[in-house]
Nucleic acid binder design. Structure first.
Ligand SMILES: [Mn+2]
Ligand SMILES: [Mn+2]
Ligand SMILES: [Zn+2]
Ligand SMILES: [Zn+2]
Lengths: 148, 148
DNA sequence: TTTACTAATGAGAATCATTTGCAACAAGAA
DNA sequence: TTCTTGTTGCAAATGATTCTCATTAGTAAA
């Protein structure tokens, strides 16, 4: 059993929940996608592999994966929530192009440290950090930012 | 005419759009609210103080106010976008308590500078920056973070 | 002023992502 | 095996946002 499965089974055990086949499929598919994905993409990906998992079950599994620390709702683009698995990946911020939808990732420990300091200042217990810059990527700036 | 109205009328003039009564009411109400608000709150506030402005008109005015640099979609809570007017206010980040809903604001120029440097590194033209820390505020940590 | 043109509006229907209710199902416990 | 209870798929419900379209109102020309 791989690392993320171990983490999830342990999590489910603690919650007295079952590691069902549907949850197995959802977990594995989440870790097979190496981009920021939305629920519909996840659903379609599962579907093409001939496994029948309903949207409802996916929507029900997502909060579990998040609570287990395996998945993060990391940004919003084109009015859809985008997720990414976070186990094995350093925390990072996003530069989101509003024109072409490109997403650039950047790891920056300095920003992270500053944010942690702010949290300490307020006795705030951080569960999740979100940093995103929206605008135009270099390609789209060249073309002209007159339209959206 | 006050500053924000001047900015908005100039903006509308440039876009060859009209400074209608509905837009006037929406603008004034946006600047009368000194909290982060959602569209429904804005709608209800307008409803109790003025004659009818439809939801559709509000939804249509919001992007204009944002484009004019007067308003910002600054965070998402309970699957609703929360807005705040930004004219006359320094840019700031948010600490959002997932338990009691409290929102703490913090101005941090160092974080801002670091993010600007990242944007320059990628030739990225920033239109909007969003930084938010979710978790438990000091009050809610004390009580115990076992639930939610 | 009046007229004429067009953007803007209000009301509600449509849309789209997400959630929920429920009957059928399946994993363990006994 | 039988029982208990969590889980699932389906479809209907929900809720925020967008769209359609008939009507209204702002503006410029006459
Ligand atoms: Mn990412
Ligand atoms: Mn704020
Ligand atoms: Zn781009
Ligand atoms: Zn709190």
């Amino acid at each position: 059993m791989n690392d993320y499965s171990k983490i999830f089974t342990d999590f489910l055990l603690r919650k007295e929940m079952k590691f069902t086949n549907s949850r197995k499929i959802i977990l594995d598919t989440v870790f097979s996608l190496h981009d920021h994905f939305d629920i519909e993409t996840l659903y379609e990906t599962i579907k093409t592999k001939h496994n029948n998992v309903s949207r409802a079950t996916i929507y029900r599994a997502i909060p579990l994966l998040i609570e287990a620390g395996l998945l993060k709702k990391s940004l919003r683009s084109l009015s859809k929530d985008k997720y990414e698995h976070i186990f094995g990946h350093p925390s990072h911020l996003h530069l989101i192009c509003d024109k072409c939808g490109k997403i650039i990732e950047e790891v920056d420990k300095d920003v992270e440290n500053l944010l942690n300091k702010i949290a300490i200042k307020y006795d705030f217990k951080i569960k999740e950090v979100n940093v995103s810059l929206r605008g135009f990527c270099s390609d789209c700036v060249k073309v002209g930012s007159s339209n959206v």
